[in-house]
Computed example of a mutant assay.
Amino acid sequence: MIPKRAKQAVGQRLLEAFRAAGAEEVAPDILLPAGSLLDLYGEDIRARAYVTADPIRGEMMLRPDFTVPVVEAHMTNGAEPARYCYLGEVFRKQDMGDQRPATLRDNEYLQAGFELFSRDPAADAEVFALFHRLLAPHRLRAEIGDMGLVLDAVRGLPLPEARREALLHHVWRPGRFRRMLARFSTPSVPRHFPEADAPWAGMRSEAEMIRRIARLNADAAVAPLPAIWTERLERLFRLRGPAPEVQAQLAELAEDMPAIAGAVARIGAQMAAIAGHGIDPEAVIFDASHGRTTLEYYDGFTFSFHVGNFHASREGWPPIASGGRYDALTRVLGKGREIPAVGGIIRPGLLAELEGAA
């Protein structure tokens, strides 16, 4: 068991490196208003966060992550460009998802993080290169992806807007997404809603129920998604390998899925910028599904660092570090303002365990 002081020592070392990279240290509250998180994620966040009630402040949550409070503070009175760093505990319930996890996650753990608010298109590469440099001594496996690629692929499906929006809502929940895609790929079963003389009952009004029935009837008339589009989407989700190799495969797939062409070009530029920092693209894994099981605010470039062949006894560990781009989050929390943003976190406790075993 690694003592907390050892984990804190690693965290302070990371914090010093983030400050040296130009970041201002911030310390968001541990107890946060639940409203912003519920507005962003809906009731799903309750399955992951510890929720309590205050008689004056209302519903509150133990801090599930740092990004949301940092973005809220920046969008209220921050200048741009801006760099922030932080160190502290986050609290997460066990997330069972669609299956019970083989390895239970910590309910409380230390995070050290770095957030960059900048309109510079090279910001993704800057943040990734910073994390890569800090973690290089630990010989971790670097993986990247781009949620914009996945989102553009779904937006390009020949489906009515309502069905596309439903798929986009569940894209971060692969099990639900897969089941919904299967339903949209088969003919709908017409539903019969007989008229009755009985009065309307329940929480919804008569007008709401009539609109709901009309939507269900309209959806039943929609033709199923042709199988070729499901096959293309599955091809995209399966792409994984050394970044240059996957880039070539993405370029081929873009011929069949024109909606992803812009994202493929952007990924090429990102890889060139990463190589410009002295990182070998062949040593970076590109996973087209990367980011689909994280918090929903990542909408572009994503990255993570994992234990690899050098740490076989740690197989099953969560990522040592992770992060990505979250432009849409700044629009939601910006009260009329927005700015491109990218950031990430490192788990000092896991690094302390690796260093203790070295």
Score class of each variant (00 low, 15 high):
Thr294Trp: 15
Pro224His: 09
Pro348Lys: 10
Ile228Met: 03
Arg105Trp: 04
Arg314Thr: 01
Glu165Val: 08
Arg105Ala: 11
Pro137Ala: 07
His192Asp: 14
Gly336Ser: 02
Gly276Thr: 05
Leu236Asn: 11
Asn309Ala: 14
Gly262Pro: 09
Arg292Ile: 01
Gly324Leu: 06
His132Gly: 02
Ile144Tyr: 13
Arg178Phe: 01
Glu72Trp: 11
Phe301Leu: 00
Pro174Lys: 03
Met203Trp: 12
Arg133Pro: 00
Gly262Glu: 11
Ala288Leu: 03
Ile320Ala: 03
Met96Gln: 09
Ala265Trp: 05
Gly58Arg: 09
His306Trp: 15
Arg337Ala: 07
Pro281Val: 09
Glu59Val: 14
Met61Gln: 01
Glu165Met: 09
Arg191Pro: 00
Lys335Pro: 06
Leu233Ile: 05
Phe117Asn: 02
Gly300Leu: 02
Pro3Asn: 04
Leu216Met: 12
Pro55Gln: 03
Ala341Glu: 02
Phe305Glu: 04
Ser289Phe: 07
Asn77Gly: 13
Arg63Ala: 04
Ala207Leu: 01
Ile210Gln: 10
Gln94Ile: 06
Glu126Asn: 03
Trp200Asn: 03
Met147Ser: 10
Gly22Ala: 05
Asp219Leu: 06
Phe305Thr: 03
His311Pro: 02
Trp229Lys: 01
Lys4Tyr: 15
Glu126Pro: 02
Glu338Cys: 07
Phe128Cys: 08
Ile213Arg: 14
Ala321Cys: 06
Gln270Arg: 13
Pro224Glu: 04
Phe310Gly: 10
Val284Asp: 07
Ala153Tyr: 02
Ala27Met: 07
Glu143Asp: 14
Asn77Leu: 00
Met61His: 01
Asn107Arg: 15
Ala196Arg: 13
Arg155Trp: 00
Ala227Trp: 02
Glu24Ile: 07
Gln249Trp: 00
Met96Phe: 15
Glu296Tyr: 15
Tyr298Val: 01
Gly278Asn: 10
Ala321Asn: 08
Val189Thr: 15
Tyr86Asn: 03
Thr302Tyr: 02
Arg92Ser: 04
Gly11Asp: 10
Thr186Met: 04
Val307Ile: 09
Leu110Thr: 12
Pro3Gln: 11
Ala102Gly: 07
Leu149Gln: 08
Gly316Asp: 06
Gln249Ala: 13
Val150Phe: 06
Gly308Ala: 05
Glu234Phe: 06
Arg63Cys: 00
Leu351Arg: 13
Pro348Ile: 11
Leu110Glu: 11
Pro318Asn: 03
Arg141Ala: 04
Arg83His: 10
Arg240Ala: 07
Gly35Glu: 14
Ala34Thr: 15
Ala123Leu: 02
Ala312Ser: 14
Pro242Phe: 09
Tyr297Asn: 02
Arg232Asp: 04
Glu231Ile: 04
Gly268Thr: 05
Ala312Lys: 15
Pro224Cys: 07
Arg173Gly: 00
Arg133Asn: 08
Glu282Ser: 12
